[in-house]
Write a protein that binds this DNA or RNA. Structure first.
Lengths: 199, 199
DNA sequence: CTTCTTATGTTGACACTGACAACATAAAGG
DNA sequence: CCTTTATGTTGTCAGTGTCAACATAAGAAG
């Protein structure tokens, strides 16, 4: 549903999303300006409004796409028959961290509180999908010994929170710098601390 | 160094910081406007500039103060003789999560990537202090069995990342909502998952 | 092909913002 | 008292997000 291949400019919607991510990567979310975005695509300042009603809308769309990508990447390990249930959950956590490191700008927008505030329905749906994939994996791993003594309602925030937080730590230049994370740790080691792959 | 008790308005700097936190709590960081801030304190639009050179400066100051407060709260458990080393680290993690829940607006600004980008020296110093307190506690706990098989450079990001991420999850309305964290888990249970208090 | 409709892009405007410079006044210190 | 410094004000500027009115291209219908 994303390819309205034909319109005056080529495919402005897609171009806007890509250019926005590029800008954010270089200058941060706050520096993103709809007018500059339009200008750098050679289009008038109000053209983006045909595709995104507001700046928040554009950011929401970026995050929705990002969650879809992330869900896909993580889901690839959800049913791997070569892995135990614990190893699957471990792989999912590591994959999520790796994805964040490879897509810093998108991840940065995902964790931006101001975007959360204006989330639209599409974003909430994408997040719900992501959540469902993990909930299943956690439940399965739990029955194989993943903190089976801890209450279930704590397990979910722990797994997602740890994964998100570690990714945030590694991608935030201030934290990574000031906290003296000189040598970037192996993501495998980090995932092992969240979910030990052995029983 | 924070109490320049006498000036025209009373203590504008402090008033600005407090009013800013209040506004952020209600409307988010993006909605914060220097001019509105000035207006709501009954002061001309350029008055804040005598105390904060830019909007980023004000946010930086909020975060610096916040880290100082957080460090103090966490540090209270660093040498508690009634606790084992593992229990201390556990208490520090739980305290940090509790602090974030009790100071949502400040925590939100702390984890805002745009603030990180413009961090000044005072902020970096505050973060370094925070980091030092934790590094010591982690090293001690490790020698008492806290993941002593994992590489040290992974342990640090794991502990801070998990704590920050869980706090973020619980304080972000979008994540907490869409991830179906219906019943807020006990922070104690969460801290136990990060650092088991028993050997 | 012609005509109608819709999708997309443009122009112009508005209120608002952060930032700066020039000026004004209060406070403090000699 | 006078001078200096800290603090606040007024005026201005370029830039922003958003909206409404207009223009044009694309596609569908006849």
């Amino acid at each position: 549903m994303n390819d309205k291949a034909a319109y005056h400019h080529g495919n402005l919607r897609k171009a806007l999303l890509e250019e926005a991510v590029t800008t954010i990567e270089a200058q941060g979310v706050e520096a993103l300006s709809m007018r500059q975005l339009a200008a750098s695509l050679g289009v008038s300042h109000a053209a983006p409004r045909r595709h995104f009603e507001s700046k928040g809308d554009l950011l929401s769309a970026i995050v929705t796409d990002a969650y879809t990508e992330l869900t896909e990447a993580v889901f690839a390990h959800a049913d791997d028959p070569a892995l135990s249930r614990l190893e699957r959950l471990n792989a999912m956590s590591r994959t999520a961290i790796d994805w964040a490191l490879a897509n810093r700008a998108k991840f940065q927008v995902m964790t931006n509180p101001d975007v959360s505030r204006f989330a639209d329905e599409a974003l909430k749906a994408a997040l719900a999908d992501f959540s469902a994939v993990l909930a299943k994996a956690i439940t399965e791993a739990r029955s194989d010994g993943f903190h089976d003594d801890a209450p279930m309602e704590a397990l979910f925030p722990f797994l997602i929170g740890s994964t998100v937080g570690i990714a945030k730590l590694l991608t935030d230049p201030l934290m990574a710098g000031a906290l003296n994370i000189a040598k970037e740790p192996q993501t495998g080691d980090l995932a092992d601390l969240i979910v030990s792959p052995e029983e």
